[in-house]
């Protein structure tokens, strides 16, 4: 994680963001950006890297595209589902916190999985303990670990496993 290559990549990403957000190539803007990007790189060199931990294989890149499409579909579904619940006079809820297990090993994979779960229909990641995730579910279909894992985790896991392992 602390390799020169990763740090260079982090620095380049930060500086790229700075230039894009500023939309200016004036000397003083670039100088401030260089200093800020350098300091952040030093301070956060051990943190997660979305890009550099991605496996750069064709299969992983295809999976990344599939993941984004699947995620977009789930995000829209989740909002329509929520709209249905909120607009219904009876407020059909059956909330609970279920436990699911992930087979993802990498930190980045688990982070993206937890984030994705939070944005998909009726589920919210409350806590993570190693391979176990605790999920708040607006309409609990099954409190069984296996069934809940199949319903909540498996869809994303198939993509993330190829991308990050």
């Amino acid at each position: 994680m602390t390799g020169t290559r990763d740090m260079t990549l982090l620095f380049a990403t930060l500086f790229g963001f700075w230039v894009l957000l500023n939309g200016s190539l004036a000397g003083d803007v670039l100088l401030v950006g260089l200093i800020a990007a350098f300091l952040i790189t030093l301070l956060f060199r051990n943190s997660l890297a979305v890009v550099s931990e991605l496996r750069m294989t064709p299969r992983a890149l295809i999976a990344a595209v599939g993941y984004v499409l699947f995620f977009a579909r789930e995000l829209v579904k989740s909002n329509l589902n929520l709209a249905g619940i909120v607009l219904s006079p009876a407020l059909p809820l059956n909330p609970g916190i279920v436990k699911v297990r992930t087979r993802l090993k990498s930190r980045m994979g688990r982070l993206l999985l937890a984030n994705s779960i939070t944005l998909t229909p009726g589920t919210l990641t409350v806590d993570i303990d190693g391979e176990w995730l605790y999920i708040h579910w607006v309409t609990v279909d099954s409190a069984d670990i296996e069934a809940a894992t199949a319903a909540i985790v498996s869809g994303f896991e198939d993509y993330l496993e190829v991308m990050y392992g």
Partner: peptide
């Protein structure tokens, strides 16, 4: 928690 809440595996 809402009284509707069923299971709470975390607790």
């Amino acid at each position: 928690k809402s009284p509707l809440t069923g299971v709470d595996r975390l607790a």
